[in-house]
Amino acid sequence: MSAFKWLATIGAGIMFAACASKPDHFYTLDVLPAGDRPALAGTLLHVRLDVTVPSLVDRSEMVVTTADNGVQILDHERWAAPLSDQVTQTLSRDLERRRPDVLVGDRRFDQGKAAAVVKVDIVRMSAARAGHVKLEAHWHITDIDAGLDTVGGDSFDVPLSGPDYAAMAQGYSQALSQLADKLVSALPTR
């Protein structure tokens, strides 16, 4: 092998080394209160939950609002699953923690046979670094058996416990937990 070839190989190696990216961080939302689901009790109520998330934040990357009315998409701070899925799953578990007689599923679960349908439209979901998580949601709860509709809406503001992104995910989890508190009071009982 000639010296030129060695030089070319080393050069290519340096160039590929230059191409190496920064590592990504992945975050999940927490179910609150933490711990196992309480044992099922009473007449079980099937609830279907549909959640829509604003398309601004419904992406793999975390999005933070900046002071100048802008947003920053954090390419290396990512959600472990698509945010809308995570929100739905988290909210479902939150509700089940609060009502031991309720089983919550998305539209794939027990389709058309749910006793109640909860539609949650999250119209605003934003977080500012070292600031607050703000969540604004409308909901529409239908008691199919009783034919009753309940409509409601609220906004939640959770101050972040730290400047890091884990705190931001924690803030989102708390905001969803507060939303679950509101929804549970409106869920039908059997």
Partner: peptide, 26 residues
């Protein structure tokens, strides 16, 4: 589709990432 969309979205923002990888977050 969402992933593709995200990729396209990212490449739109960082076309150099194809050659140089993902830049760090500011």
């Amino acid at each position: 589709a969402k992933s593709v969309s995200a990729l396209v979205d990212y490449l739109e923002r960082h076309p150099e990432a194809l050659l140089r990888g993902k830049p760090g977050d500011s």
